[in-house]
């Protein structure tokens, strides 16, 4: 079994980071993982995406044409990738920035205003963590407890940020389960 998750958005939204946290959590769960970034000449405000591959066998191709799931943090990302997602996958949409609906009925669409949710918990900067937590709650790729540990570990060097991100995580999970 192998799952692939495409995280996509603007540079600066913390896309690479949430991909890394998911990959870390999956590694902690004993899965084979690979995190593959886009590394074109990118900058803040440009497009950024990364692919996280999680499997129970050694991971072959890091080049994935049709990922299982999508986390779209901005409109161009949704437009670019939604048609590539495998049937049955989760498509998580940041509705704070994306007004569109998904014109597919074979994927599990989760629309959440992650920027507003993050702002309510303390800072709009944690929108990426809200999105990650909501996605994991819906897709169940890794246990939420493991995800929580990995988020904490990610912010170990800046412990002041841990409570904010914990709140963001809880809010993301709650929103996904609503």
């Amino acid at each position: 079994m192998q799952s692939e998750v495409m995280f996509a958005g603007f540079g600066g939204q913390g896309i690479m980071l949430i991909g890394k946290i998911l990959a870390h959590a999956a590694m902690e769960e004993g899965y084979e993982v690979a995190w593959i970034p886009s590394y074109g000449p990118e900058m803040r405000g440009g497009t950024a995406y990364c692919m996280v591959v999680i499997g129970d066998q050694p991971i072959g191709s890091p080049i994935i044409k049709n990922p299982s799931h999508l986390v779209a943090m901005n409109r161009p990302s949704l437009q670019k990738f939604v048609s590539t997602i495998k049937s049955g996958g989760v498509v998580m949409i940041n509705s704070s920035l994306i007004p569109d609906d998904v014109q597919r009925n074979d994927v599990d669409v989760l629309k959440l205003p992650v920027v507003e949710i993050a702002t309510d918990t303390g800072s709009s900067k944690a929108a990426n963590i809200v999105a990650l937590a909501a996605f994991v709650a819906r897709s169940k790729l890794v246990p939420l407890e493991t995800l929580k540990r990995c988020i904490e570990e990610e912010f170990q060097s800046r412990p002041k940020l841990i409570p904010l991100n914990m709140k963001a995580m809880e809010a993301g999970v709650a929103a996904a389960n609503k």
């Binding site: 690979a34 995190w35 593959i36 970034p37 890091p62």
Partner: peptide, 10 residues
Amino acid sequence: DGLIGQMMEP
């Protein structure tokens, strides 16, 4: 190749 450098794996 560039992917070997850029990719993250355990």
